[in-house]
């Protein structure tokens, strides 16, 4: 049993040794050396800005499969920082693309850099985009359900109807009062007449 394990370990070592030259081949292949950022020069808040970063080797060949980080330097609540906008991986043409919808106005300094610890280091590329203030509220949440035709007037009509009945009853009292007065007056007159007769 033990022997089998040792044999397997040996095989594993051999396999690793065999693989060594392969990784060496990768190391020899062209490394990303150049980063270019293309961004529109201006826009306004809420626009969809297309950011593109081209990664190429020292010889100018496009580099696929490299992760690019896009950032913008900003100041918010008296804190200044470089904010990550997003990441994208380069395609066969060596282009990493993302769409950025700016929510802040001003001269935004957008930069692109390679993700991770890349050796040798690749200089990040940056570009300034002038963003104009937009008119519309970007974040809005609709609360509540609006049923057409239904509103406080309905409550007012119901309440008004009930109170109308109350007032009507009071008006009826007035009539009862008048009826009573009338009949009393009649009785008085008839009594007077009787007396005269």
């Amino acid at each position: 049993m033990k022997g089998t394990i040792y044999r397997m370990l040996l095989l594993l070592c051999l396999a690793l040794l065999a693989a060594w030259p392969v990784s060496a081949v990768f190391a020899d292949s062209p490394a990303p050396a150049k980063l270019d950022l293309t961004a529109p020069s201006s826009g306004s808040v809420g626009d969809r800005l297309s950011l593109k970063a081209l990664v190429s080797s020292a010889t100018g060949e496009p580099m696929p499969g490299v992760v690019v980080v896009f950032k913008v330097s900003t100041s918010f609540m008296n804190t200044e920082d470089s904010v990550e906008l997003g990441r994208a991986t380069t395609d066969k043409q060596g282009v990493a693309a993302m769409t950025y919808v700016p929510h802040s106005s001003g001269d935004l300094s957008i930069s692109a850099s390679l993700s991770g610890d890349v050796k040798p280091a690749v200089k990040s590329a940056s570009s300034v985009v002038k963003i104009l203030e937009g008119p519309q509220q970007y974040d809005s949440e609709q609360i509540g359900v609006s049923v057409p035709g239904l509103g406080p007037w309905f409550l007012a009509v119901v309440m008004g109807g009930i109170w109308f009945v109350f007032l009507w009853a009071m008006a009826q009292l007035r009539q009862i009062f008048r009826d009573g007065q009338h009949s009393a007056a009649q009785k008085r007159t008839s009594r007077l007449e009787n007396r005269h007769v």
Partner: peptide, 21 residues
């Protein structure tokens, strides 16, 4: 973090982050 959904930024006083992401 304290932030603004409209400007899509938030900060804890040290870092600034894009709120939505």
């Amino acid at each position: 973090y304290f932030g603004d959904l409209e400007e899509d930024l938030a900060t804890n006083g040290r870092n600034v982050v894009m709120l939505s992401s």
